[in-house]
Amino acid sequence: MALIVNRPKLSLAERCYLPAIFSGLVITWNHLKRAIFNKGIVTMQYPEQKWDANLPDWYRGAPTLVADEHGKDRCVACQLCEFICPPRAITIKPMEIPSEDKWKKVEKRPDEFDIDMARCIYCGLCEEVCPEQAIFLRKDYSITGLSRADMVHDKKTLYKLGGVRTGLVFKWNELK
């Protein structure tokens, strides 16, 4: 089936462009006028204005370690996150909790826990795989540093970013 494109018959005013150009100029002038007085501008000026309040609940930001309500590590250094991490950003050095320790039953804790944020792809697999719910993706997205070493988050930074989470995992409870 042939498609027939109808060419509308243009009036003289339309053919000599000038009225259309003039009305176009009026439109852009109004935009210019409004924008000069800072109205109608859609740009968000990032470091001063942020979209943080509107981030969705499922937003995947920087992975962090969380402490439980007693201020103890949730992580038991099982290294599942280290093995699942697609870009191999996580490095864990586990440490055995000595037998004379009160918390011997917990068995393992991380001695060092590094996440290289220059490699992290924010996929969230570490959070998904963690049996102790110790690693969570928070809403921090602006991770910067002046060197590669700066970009590696160590245990201290990870706990600082992560904060405290209360919830289901109770391994640090004496009764359980």
Binding site: T28, H31, L32, R34, A35, I36, G40, I41, V42, T43
Partner: peptide
Amino acid sequence: VSAFIQDRV
């Protein structure tokens, strides 16, 4: 000016 006309900064 181009930015202002396009509602940018």
